[in-house]
Simulated scan of single mutants.
Amino acid sequence: MKCVARQLASSVVCGLLFWAGGVAAQGPVCSEADAEALQWLARTVKSRSEVAYQGVVTLQRGDDMQVVQVARSLADGYSSEHLTRLTGQGAQVVRPHHPLNCTHPGEQLLTLGDRVEAGDCGLARYYRFEVGPGERIAGRQSVKLEIQPRDMYRYGFLLELDQDTALMLRASTLGRGGKILERFQFADLSYDEPLEPRSGMDTVHPAAHPHPDDPTAGARLSVPWIVSWLPNGFTATDAADPEGPRRTYTDGLAVFSVFLEQLPRELRPGEGLARLGSSLSYTRGMHLADQPVLVTVIGEVPVNTARMVADSIRVAR
């Protein structure tokens, strides 16, 4: 029996594959869809349940560079993954015994390649895809997949996949003018049996895998609320608690969350913004049913998208 669960947005290896609902596209857009590109996306998803590996990746965000050891093993219908940061304070994220038949909603979208001709274009309605030959990365020949947004509400991507296994070897998030905002890539890769998690780490984080219909953790608000505007193609990833503090949305490649916190008093007018690579945190104060609240949008979208999402928060009717 398949289960449907949230993606781990913070995972370096898995972080670019998220959910968006398949929406019937208009003919002209659907006719532009690159079936070969969508098939490569589908192969990338499939590699998650078929490919065991170990390696070292670099994650570049502006002037910040992190080096991470990553590994995935497969056994008895489960996968186990661990990520160990090799720079700065030692820390490790471990996700053991993840069922291989657990289907994430994002994976359902990224296997749409076979249905493009039927008009179900999925991501191709919101992005343009182009596939071509890539470079050698970590000693492996790659296939290059260029992904350009069709509007101003999302970023572009440049993915380079292993020609043999479709494992993602390099992924770049692109801003306006093709500027690289964030990039991760394998510096070393082996398909042998993965290493065991390192011992002696300062911090070890077990990665939780909650069911999407579980109640949202955190303090409940006094009134139900909704996000009344989303860019086309962005969809809720789970069943949100109407009075819970969080909503999460994705279009299949980008993801962002909206948090609301009730305040004891009103904030001064203004907004706050922090960026790290392709991720931002946008905050501002507002009123919800005469109650002062702090709204925070965190995710991989341009600041104008975050601002418009924050402006659209309303009391649920």
Rank of each mutant, 00 (worst) to 15 (best):
Y249T: 12
A171T: 10
A239Q: 06
S80L: 10
C121E: 03
A316V: 12
T44I: 03
P245E: 02
G119M: 06
R61H: 01
Y78R: 09
E146G: 12
A5W: 09
L267Y: 06
G22I: 14
P133E: 14
L16E: 11
E271C: 06
G218T: 08
S281I: 15
E266W: 02
P224F: 07
V4L: 03
T111C: 07
L109Q: 11
G244D: 00
M152E: 11
T44H: 02
G156P: 05
G132E: 09
D164G: 05
G62D: 01
S278F: 03
C14H: 12
S257N: 00
T250I: 08
Q69M: 03
A236G: 12
L280Q: 12
Q148G: 01
L174K: 08
P194T: 11
T248S: 12
V56M: 01
M1A: 05
N232V: 15
T296R: 02
S278V: 09
A207K: 06
L16W: 15
P28F: 13
V204R: 03
L159H: 08
Q148W: 09
R198G: 10
D63S: 09
G156T: 13
Q141N: 05
E32H: 11
R265T: 14
R307D: 02
D76C: 05
L294A: 10
E243A: 13
E36T: 15
S47K: 08
Q108R: 13
S222T: 14
A124M: 04
V29P: 02
W225H: 00
H209A: 11
P133M: 14
S278T: 04
Q60W: 00
K179V: 15
T203E: 07
L86H: 00
L109W: 04
A118C: 10
V295L: 02
L38W: 01
M308C: 10
A306Y: 05
G55P: 05
L59K: 02
P197L: 07
L280W: 06
N232Y: 07
R95W: 11
W229M: 05
E243S: 09
L38T: 13
A42C: 10
D76R: 14
R220T: 11
A187W: 03
A171H: 09
V309A: 02
M286A: 12
D188A: 07
I298R: 06
N304P: 04
M1E: 07
L263D: 01
P133D: 15
E243C: 13
P292N: 04
H97A: 13
Q89E: 12
K46E: 15
D192V: 13
T305K: 09
V258D: 00
A289L: 01
P210W: 03
